[in-house]
Amino acid sequence: MAAGGDHGSPDSYRSPLASRYASPEMCFVFSDRYKFRTWRQLWLWLAEAEQTLGLPITDEQIQEMKSNLENIDFKMAAEEEKRLRHDVMAHVHTFGHCCPKAAGIIHLGATSCYVGDNTDLIILRNALDLLLPKLARVISRLADFAKERASLPTLGFTHFQPAQLTTVGKRCCLWIQDLCMDLQNLKRVRDDLRFRGVKGTTGTQASFLQLFEGDDHKVEQLDKMVTEKAGFKRAFIITGQTYTRKVDIEVLSVLASLGASVHKICTDIRLLANLKEMEEPFEKQQIGSSAMPYKRNPMRSERCCSLARHLMTLVMDPLQTASVQWFERTLDDSANRRICLAEAFLTADTILNTLQNISEGLVVYPKVIERRIRQELPFMATENIIMAMVKAGGSRQDCHEKIRVLSQQAASVVKQEGGDNDLIERIQVDAYFSPIHSQLDHLLDPSSFTGRASQQVQRFLEEEVYPLLKPYESVMKVKAELCL
């Protein structure tokens, strides 16, 4: 049975990233139509530049190519590739079939990587351009969430054990800070992308030097003109047959890092959902379990974690691919890159769409948070109580021993009897502590235990987050809708 299948058929496997999760716009960027249309555009740009620099290419040939950029006979191309065992030459023939007058000058002087690699770089750039505003929107939604809850005390956790208090907004800023680093890295790697350009079979530009009869300047002009037509500021000066596969490492490393950030955020949300302090959106008709109707599973956060793990592992592909590119190139890269580049971007696209949807509907339960604080705060307040007693004339050592005994009794009630923490009640009825009984409410005010959390939130948002989001103001209103 021949390899390949009808990918629109229910009898043929289709990647869930495309069929179930990723956005239509990201799927289109990695589609065959987008790819092969870009090949034709690159052939047109090459012909236009070659004509401008004096090669015998007519206006009629150029116009014929322009008129057929979208006229792609995919069936013919597939048949040609089956016959020739070469995808680029299959599309040269297919393009030439609908451009008979231009057929002889299509791909003039070029090698397969002229269309293959340059198209990949265009796709990487455009895919990054799709991700950047999506990530900015996630940051914006979380920034709104953090600002609104900047002063809401909550129990902090280290080692997932109760620690000092923080605020809900401050905790959210930990998430935002990681995503801001990801946004900066995505922008950097996007701006650092260079075009492969017009380089020939081993990167020496020998074929173009021959076409222009040894004119170095025209060869350099050709490279520059096509690079500018493709919208790049610069091209690699040095290439082998391909652009260095280190570029793929750079791009997928940034995406993998984004995956790590999203995994951490969504894990926190899942843990908070278990504590009943916070939940992701839950639709009115949504079913959490087929057997347990009360369940409210954090399905979206779980999906993000599941896909983020996949995204983090994909960076190993370009690392290994770059390491086995012998001399000017081997074909070890080809099949692998067809999979890992598309999957990385479709996965990143999915987790950003999902995280935006989550961040637009996060639900906080202040009463649950308050109750958990009441359970733990008495123990945390013991040092403040000791200091207040010393100020009232008591002995630190005597007070410490009193607190120690009462704390152990209260802990026994919590752990052995399943009761509430009654340390404060014990202190309130103990005559030894009568000098500070009137101060206990103040000493137990949760806001006095959150330090500068709310001020940190305000400063972080104003100095770091809002300036970073400013270039994306025009796209901030787009909502994230999930079908599944």
Results as ranks from 00 to 15, higher is better:
293 P>F: 02
417 E>N: 12
20 R>W: 01
403 I>V: 11
213 E>D: 04
479 K>H: 14
102 A>Q: 01
398 D>K: 12
276 K>D: 08
10 P>S: 14
433 F>C: 06
293 P>T: 02
262 V>L: 09
241 Q>P: 00
230 A>R: 05
25 E>C: 11
43 W>Y: 03
161 Q>A: 03
169 G>R: 02
294 Y>W: 02
132 L>P: 11
362 L>N: 00
306 S>Q: 01
284 K>Y: 13
54 G>S: 08
462 E>M: 13
327 F>P: 02
14 R>K: 14
11 D>K: 08
10 P>N: 15
106 I>S: 01
244 T>L: 01
48 E>S: 06
273 A>T: 13
52 T>H: 13
456 Q>T: 05
92 V>Q: 00
256 A>V: 07
61 Q>P: 07
231 G>S: 12
477 K>P: 15
38 T>D: 00
372 R>H: 12
482 L>M: 15
320 Q>F: 10
446 P>Y: 08
441 D>V: 09
79 E>V: 11
434 S>D: 12
145 F>H: 10
48 E>V: 05
447 S>Q: 12
350 T>W: 04
231 G>T: 02
405 V>K: 13
472 Y>P: 07
122 I>S: 02
87 D>L: 04
474 S>N: 15
398 D>E: 13
137 R>I: 15
300 R>G: 04
51 Q>T: 05
60 E>K: 11
313 T>V: 10
249 I>N: 06
452 R>H: 05
439 Q>E: 15
165 L>D: 00
413 V>Y: 13
386 I>M: 00
239 T>R: 01
67 S>P: 07
342 A>R: 06
273 A>P: 01
119 T>Q: 05
484 L>R: 15
68 N>C: 09
141 R>W: 14
140 S>W: 15
45 W>A: 11
132 L>R: 14
469 L>R: 03
332 D>T: 05
336 N>Y: 02
474 S>A: 14
256 A>S: 13
236 F>Y: 13
51 Q>E: 04
160 F>I: 01
198 V>I: 15
84 L>P: 01
226 V>S: 04
345 F>L: 12
363 V>M: 08
421 N>G: 05
201 T>M: 00
102 A>K: 00
351 I>Y: 04
287 I>D: 02
146 A>L: 04
64 E>T: 10
483 C>E: 12
268 D>N: 11
306 S>W: 02
329 R>Y: 00
286 Q>W: 02
301 S>V: 13
56 P>F: 07
349 D>K: 04
354 T>K: 03
260 A>I: 00
12 S>R: 14
328 E>M: 03
398 D>V: 12
32 D>K: 15
353 N>I: 11
120 D>I: 09
359 S>Y: 13
286 Q>K: 01
350 T>Q: 10
204 T>Y: 00
370 E>F: 12
23 S>R: 08
177 Q>D: 03
321 T>D: 03
183 L>F: 10
481 E>Q: 15
348 A>I: 09
30 F>I: 09
410 A>W: 03
96 G>W: 07
245 R>M: 04
135 L>M: 14
193 L>R: 04
388 A>K: 04
244 T>I: 00
353 N>R: 15
162 P>N: 05
440 L>P: 01
336 N>H: 02
14 R>I: 15
308 A>F: 03
150 A>Y: 14
102 A>D: 01
415 K>D: 07
111 T>V: 00
435 P>E: 10
319 L>A: 01
252 L>N: 12
258 L>N: 07
63 Q>H: 07
307 L>Y: 00
360 E>L: 11
178 D>C: 06
346 L>M: 14
94 T>E: 14
76 M>K: 15
38 T>W: 02
458 Q>V: 13
109 G>W: 01
184 Q>M: 13
437 H>N: 07
268 D>S: 09
266 C>F: 05
255 L>F: 13
397 Q>C: 06
139 I>H: 04
7 H>Q: 14
28 F>G: 07
30 F>P: 00
33 R>T: 14
168 V>R: 01
140 S>G: 13
220 E>R: 09
416 Q>W: 11
124 L>W: 14
409 Q>W: 07
188 R>T: 07
110 A>Y: 03
64 E>H: 08
12 S>F: 12
380 M>G: 03
159 H>D: 00
317 D>R: 02
76 M>R: 12
456 Q>N: 05
391 K>A: 15
30 F>Y: 08
385 I>D: 07
40 R>L: 01
466 Y>N: 09
141 R>G: 14
403 I>E: 05
214 G>C: 09
16 P>C: 12
237 I>D: 05
203 G>E: 02
387 M>G: 15
180 C>P: 00
298 P>D: 00
419 G>T: 09
286 Q>M: 01
211 L>Q: 10
169 G>H: 02
243 Y>L: 07
216 D>N: 12
272 L>E: 10
297 N>A: 00
257 S>H: 02
204 T>M: 02
208 F>P: 03
76 M>G: 12
269 I>G: 02
297 N>M: 07
408 Q>E: 06
357 N>Y: 06
185 N>I: 03
70 E>D: 14
303 R>P: 00
227 T>L: 03
19 S>T: 00
176 I>M: 14
324 V>R: 01
318 P>W: 04
252 L>T: 14
50 E>K: 03
190 R>F: 09
163 A>C: 04
391 K>Y: 10
45 W>R: 02
108 L>K: 01
22 A>T: 14
82 K>S: 10
4 G>V: 15
382 T>L: 02
41 Q>P: 00
439 Q>H: 12
94 T>L: 15
9 S>P: 10
232 F>C: 01
106 I>K: 00
323 S>E: 06
445 D>E: 12
299 M>D: 02
28 F>S: 08
448 S>I: 14
3 A>D: 14
144 D>P: 10
2 A>C: 15
25 E>R: 12
323 S>N: 07
33 R>D: 12
338 R>K: 06
164 Q>H: 04
175 W>N: 03
368 V>Q: 05
252 L>Y: 04
168 V>A: 05
30 F>M: 13
63 Q>N: 14
327 F>W: 03
474 S>R: 14
327 F>S: 07
